[in-house]
Amino acid sequence: QVALSRTQVCGILREELFQGDAFHQSDTHIFIIMGASGDLAKKKIYPTIWWLFRDGLLPENTFIVGYARSRLTVADIRKQSEPFFKATPEEKLKLEDFFARNSYVAGQYDDAASYQRLNSHMNALHLGSQANRLFYLALPPTVYEAVTKNIHESCMSQIGWNRIIVEKPFGRDLQSSDRLSNHISSLFREDQIYRIDHYLGKEMVQNLMVLRFANRIFGPIWNRDNIACVILTFKEPFGTEGRGGYFDEFGIIRDVMQNHLLQMLCLVAMEKPASTNSDDVRDEKVKVLKCISEVQANNVVLGQYVGNPDGEGEATKGYLDDPTVPRGSTTATFAAVVLYVENERWDGVPFILRCGKALNERKAEVRLQFHDVAGDIFHQQCKRNELVIRVQPNEAVYTKMMTKKPGMFFNPEESELDLTYGNRYKNVKLPDAYERLILDVFCGSQMHFVRSDELREAWRIFTPLLHQIELEKPKPIPYIYGSRGPTEADELMKRVGFQYEGTYKWVNPHKL
């Protein structure tokens, strides 16, 4: 086992960053958080920038500027975001240094004079007029057009580079997404736009490419001749908990499936790229999406959770019991969808996408189930092999396979070949997804960000279904809070070829 401390991990990262040409360590950078008073800024962006600063992973002359409508001070920003920093008493001095680099400007999102004030403020910072500028839009999409237009007109660096990070949702359907994309691309070049999907920053999602293309053993079996089906799962054990009003506007397909799960599907299904260059990788992902037809209604199961009468606390409440959810809402909190990649490698292999709230566990994984062994000599005792990439929690890679049961006879039983990170790298604290992705933006690497043509294809696949749901308002199937979801989803999976045995229990190697 390799035991690495946080300091050692960050030392390795620093070495990698400083050796590259793309990370300008000594240049002045300004990180501007648009929507600095909001939840995302408070819980994710400010803490992430602090962790990067604490670990010495930001360029040395980096300033952080918050911008929002609320009249706040840096002290206010500190008060609301610091509880999420997880700072230790030993880091007190470092924390003071961090907040000394912070400033805040209040202004409207659609007022040109406010942006001119913001620009004057940035120019007044040390070497601010020639600094590289990175704008993070932690804002609702309704203000994107006004904000990007004003940034472009008043706040661009004339000497350094300018980059803009856009948070999902990128529209509600193909038409609104196209409108937003066309607007942003009329102001910024594609190499300046970073559409963030934080799932692409997760260690195991990034590991998929290495697993596939750096190991000879997987190449020959990664196709329709050997793989019976692919299941991509995202499960949350909690409901909307008072935030249903926002969720109800989008629903589970827009929230998770059309982005996170579809991105994971691309990494499983794509061909080997010409290189690890950002556009070479994204070219292959677009090719996969172009091979997927629009979702067919007979390959869809929609569910909505109801309270568990035997549960406790939140578990007793259904989705419609959330006071922020519109009365009688038919918005799905669970969806199972089957897609097919219609190309030579994957023809006929079902890709089953499942996601839901208020389920029995927290889990995100990719599961490849292989065909049955031909010419069975073990009297149907063999179960199908599976390769599982567990994204969260407890990152893991393992192969479910058959071995001989101890004893006199040739009785096979299920076991696993474990390729888990935790076994080799004991207690290594890896940077989280937002840390990686923000560092990628500083480096100018777009590999783990969504390109406009990729986004367009993703919406093309799901828009007809979303429009049909909005028009017909089908009643989702009720499922109990804390269950596996509607049984109809299991029946759909069985119908397209997935075999669920229920006889195997994964042993978490992190707890051995």
Rank of each mutant, 00 (worst) to 15 (best):
K494M: 12
P478I: 07
F334Q: 03
C266Y: 01
P412F: 10
Y425T: 15
T463V: 06
R460Y: 01
A489P: 01
D453H: 03
K511W: 11
A374G: 15
V301K: 04
C291A: 09
Q446P: 05
Y398M: 15
K473Y: 05
D418G: 07
R390H: 14
M408C: 15
C443K: 02
D418C: 03
K475P: 11
F442G: 00
F498W: 10
Y504R: 14
E416H: 10
E413G: 15
N427W: 13
H260D: 13
W459F: 13
R451G: 10
V496I: 11
Y479L: 01
K383L: 08
V325K: 07
M402K: 05
P431Y: 09
V373T: 14
T403K: 12
Q446H: 02
L387G: 00
Y340T: 08
L437M: 15
V373N: 12
L368A: 04
D279F: 01
H379Y: 11
V388G: 05
P350R: 00
T487K: 10
Y305K: 02
D453L: 03
N277L: 14
L466N: 13
S278M: 08
P273E: 00
V441M: 04
E386S: 11
F370W: 09
D490S: 13
E413T: 11
S452M: 06
A336N: 07
R456Q: 09
D310H: 08
N385D: 14
M257K: 00
P412L: 14
K505I: 07
N298E: 11
L439A: 08
I438W: 04
N259F: 15
G422P: 15
G348W: 00
Y434Q: 09
E457V: 03
L387H: 01
M264H: 10
K511G: 12
G318K: 03
R367L: 13
R362N: 13
D283F: 03
L439P: 05
N360R: 06
G422L: 07
E470D: 10
C443P: 02
D279P: 12
L417P: 04
P406F: 15
H510I: 11
C266V: 03
S278R: 04
R367A: 10
E386C: 05
R327S: 13
I438H: 00
V286G: 04
S275W: 03
W506T: 14
E457P: 02
N394E: 14
Y481A: 14
K429G: 15
L265A: 11
R484E: 14
E454Q: 14
E414Y: 15
N385A: 10
V441I: 06
L455Q: 09
R390W: 04
Y504N: 14
Q392S: 11
L437K: 15
P412S: 13
E470T: 12
L289A: 07
V268G: 01
S452W: 06
V337S: 07
P509Q: 13
A433R: 14
V301G: 01
Q263M: 07
T333I: 01
L465P: 02
V373M: 14
L267C: 12
V341H: 01
E361K: 14
G303F: 01
E416I: 15
L368V: 13
K473G: 05
V286L: 14
F409E: 12
V373C: 05
R362V: 10
S329L: 01
N259G: 15
K285V: 05
Y340H: 06
P393A: 06
D322G: 05
V325F: 03
L359R: 00
C443A: 09
L359A: 04
T316E: 10
K405H: 10
C382D: 04
P412M: 11
S452R: 07
Y481F: 10
K405T: 15
K357D: 02
L466V: 12
T487F: 09
R424A: 14
I389S: 04
L419G: 03
P486A: 02
Q380H: 06
D453M: 09
A396N: 15
H260K: 12
L471Q: 09
P406R: 09
R456M: 06
V349L: 00
V256Y: 15
H448N: 10
L302T: 05
L455F: 02
D280H: 07
L471T: 13
V268D: 02
D283G: 07
G318L: 00
V373E: 15
P509G: 13
N360H: 07
P478N: 06
P412I: 11
H371T: 07
K511H: 10
D453E: 15
P474T: 11
T331F: 00
Q369H: 08
G313K: 10
A332F: 01
E435T: 10
P478L: 05
Y479A: 00
F378E: 02
Y481N: 14
Q380M: 10
F498G: 14
H467W: 09
F334A: 07
Q468E: 09
V388Q: 07
E386L: 02
F410W: 11
D310F: 14
